[in-house]
Design a protein around this nucleic acid. Structure first.
Lengths: 343, 343
DNA sequence: GGGTTCTGCCAAAACGATTTGGCACCTGCC
DNA sequence: GGCAGGTGCCAAATCGTTTTGGCAGAACCC
């Protein structure tokens, strides 16, 4: 099952391989007779010629391939959108994505990077499945690398992350805009950028609205539905309960729904709820559908590829500080936010 | 930033490139002095030699690369596990996955297949994000291809799919085993293998238990939480209501929970519920946690790679019928199934 | 000692593209 | 006619491997 090569096209068109190559690659500064060009193009088309990327890459020292190295691809549905964004942006540039995941195994990671280097990838996307600070493996210094949904303390690596603080501000503002003044924050207790960023956004929005920060309105717990349930119960059990809850993520919001139901509070009539992450499986299937703030996963993937391309193109003075890009988290309004009940 | 090649190793070790190649590839039937072997291995290690896969592939007509072509990677969290299964099994064989998704755009799909062929992939996994029958593009006949979570009417393509019928039987049996005799089936109304397969499994399990099929216990609707809610309401509103519900998927089960809550029925005290798909974001976060049946996504990915490898190895008589593999769907018991209430 | 067999290694030809450096022919001009 | 310059094409080298078909020299045998 032999594929047709450039020589076959050349022979069929009665010209040399050189000429075919010049024509197909539209090389600048080469004079080609329009008739010949036409003939060659038609012949290539007719024979179904597809350039052999291995040969091409060998000659050009360029594989038109990018490694996508992620810590844990399986656990979150977000992974899909990041990949999709990266893949589509890559395809636009004629690049293909080589997927690997390390499962947070440092040793395996080494081997996988070697594999990618063997395949002579043009660059590597080092992706995390949740926004965090990472320790970048040494080997990645020898190849263009961009951090995706992750950042490093080493400024030599460009990174693309969501703007957690703006997201927190957006969520809180959505509640403020509906007239809420007493807003609880159901947060989580991990020390990650999302936690501190969203809290900062929450405080910022309150300050803007001239509302003082009240630590009694913040309740932290595990970041799943159980945790959200407990934290919400604590906040809603108080005498002067909040009229709205900003939840750290949609899973915690799911728990908040249950807490509200148990207390006989309807959403959004008695209590408004807003989540974060826009996990559609949850936010769209809850009743009422959950208003939330989306993480720009698709855009992160796409922007990471753009950054990578920039590094590949730029003859980088190694170690020079690179762009740390922060992406906007948009509001996704649904049905869980309404004006506070009249007292 | 030039990488070290086989010639560099040869020079450093004082032998020819031929010898280095023989040693590193452990070629059979070649006599090598153990001392030389040792020296070469050490030199390669010391210089950090990594073979250039492009050159290697060019020579061997083998890229050690597999295309993963999926219709829609983003919409479902299952995607991650399929990919992970495929990726890990591939890595085991020294293969890397080239990811592309078509978004169900036939024209784009053509281009992407061309791209994969340009990169001279050793084979292609043609994956669907839900079990269905597909029309395989013509171009895929020229390259080893395996259908993943999909099947074709053309028996030339091997495929790997979940055993929907066994899954339906397993779910129903779980309810029967807890003593339920009156079991409702909240199903969906699309004409896909999952619908008919799970229904067949439901009927099969009932028959085994000597219970007659009652069409009034089956209610179809959209396959999301809203649909599940409506279907469950219909079944639970009847005079002689079922004591347990088998739901087509976890999202519908989520709706069933709400229906139960509205009717004042507790799960699993008054009503047992079992789902399907094991969407952990839902099943683990519902209260009580949802018992369900898992789709073997990881295994499907892994088995598909195994099948692909078989096709690559086998000098296939083109068009010969290939294996259609069906994978077991395991029960995932949680807290939503209990014995029926005593009347 | 001379032939034969082993041992251990190597030179050179692929693989399929791109790129460098021409070369042959034509045209126009004096 | 001779020369300069332009036009349109091509031969050969190259990228980094693998593989084929040896070839020297040592060891063995009689």
């Amino acid at each position: 099952m032999k594929r047709v090569g450039i020589k076959d096209v050349a022979a069929a068109a009665g010209v040399s391989a050189t000429t075919v190559s010049h024509i197909l690659n539209a090389v600048e500064g080469k004079r080609i007779n329009p008739d010949t060009r036409q003939l060659v193009l038609e012949t290539a088309e007719r024979l179904g010629y597809l350039p052999n990327n291995l040969a091409r890459g060998l000659r050009l020292s360029r594989s038109y391939t990018v490694g996508f190295l992620s810590d844990e691809i399986a656990t979150t549905p977000h992974a899909g959108l990041i990949i999709k964004g990266a893949q589509e942006a890559a395809a636009e540039l004629g690049l293909l994505l080589l997927m690997l995941n390390t499962g947070n195994d440092r040793e395996l990671e080494q081997k996988e990077i070697d594999l990618l280097l063997q395949h002579r990838v043009d660059g590597i996307l080092y992706a995390s499945m949740y926004h965090r600070t990472v320790e970048v493996p040494e080997q990645l210094r020898s190849v263009p690398t961009v951090l995706l949904d992750a950042r490093s303390d080493d400024p030599a690596f460009p990174s693309v992350v969501p703007d957690e603080e703006q997201g927190g501000r957006t969520a809180t503002r959505e509640l403020l805009d509906h007239g809420h003044r007493r807003i609880g924050f159901v947060t989580n207790s991990d020390d990650i950028p999302a936690t501190s960023g969203r809290l900062a956004g929450y405080r910022g929005a309150l300050a803007e609205a001239g509302i003082g920060f009240d630590a009694a309105l913040v309740s932290a717990d595990l970041s799943d539905a159980q945790g959200g349930y407990r934290a919400a119960r604590r906040l809603l059990g108080t005498a002067h309960r909040p009229t709205a809850l900003f939840c750290f993520n949609d899973r915690m919001a799911m728990g908040a729904y249950r807490a509200a139901a148990e207390l006989g509070l309807t959403v959004p009539g008695d209590l408004s709820v807003i989540g974060f992450d826009n996990q559609e499986l949850i936010s769209e299937n809850l009743f009422p559908a959950l208003s939330t703030v989306a993480l720009p996963h698709y855009e992160m993937g796409a922007r990471a590829i753009a950054q990578l391309q920039a590094v590949i193109d730029a003859p980088e003075p190694a170690g020079a500080p690179r762009s740390q890009e922060t992406l906007h988290c948009p509001l996704v309004p649904r049905d869980s936010v309404a004006p506070p009940p009249r007292l």
